[in-house]
Amino acid sequence: MQVTITVNGESWDLDVAPADVLLDVLREQIGVKSPKIGCERGDCGSCTVLLDRRTVRSCLVLAVEVEGHEVTTVEGIGADRLSDLQELFITLNSFQCGFCAPGIVLSATELLDENPNPDRHDVQEALSGNLCRCTGYEPIIDAVLAVGQRSGEVTP
C-alpha cells in the first residue's frame, strides 16, 4: 500500500505491506535508526517515537495507520542543537549503554511539553514504560527534574 508519512519534518512516500509495523519501516525504509527493537510487544519502550507529538510504541503501530501523520524521533529533536534535556542527560550520566536513551528522551520530551515543571512522581509516571537496565533511573529522573527547574527559573 502507498502511504505518505512525515518523519522529522520530511515527507516520505512509501510502499508498505499492511503487516509492516512503523518501527520496521522507520528503520529499514527511512533509515531512522534511533527507535530500537527491544521487545516488539510494547513492554520496553525502546521503540518510542512521537506520533503527532504524543509518544507511541512504534512496534505496536502499523505503518499504514500513520498515513498523513507526523512522526518525530530523537534525530528530529536534537537535529540543530541538542535540547536542554539531552545536554543534561550527558552531564548527569543519565544513560550508560544508550540503547534506551532515545525512547526515554522522547517520553521525557512529551512530559515536559505538557508539564514544564514536573515533580518526581510525574517523571516516574512518564518514564514508567521505558525500561533501562543500566542506570537505576535515578540520574534520568534527576535530569528531567533539572530541566523542569531550569524552565521554572526562566518563567517563575
Binding site: 528503520r27 535508526k33 534511533s34 530500537k36 527493537i37 524521533t73 530523537v74 534525530e75 536534537g78 541538542l82 539531552q86 542527560f89 550527558i90 544513560f95 549503554c97 544508550g98 540503547f99 536513551a101 532515545p102 528522551v105
Partner: peptide
C-alpha cells in the same frame, strides 16, 4: 560517548 548516544547517532549492530 555522550553525544553519540543522546543524539541518536550511536550505532548498534542492528543499526
Amino acid at each position: 560517548d555522550g553525544i553519540d548516544k543522546i543524539s541518536g547517532a550511536a550505532q548498534f549492530v542492528d543499526d
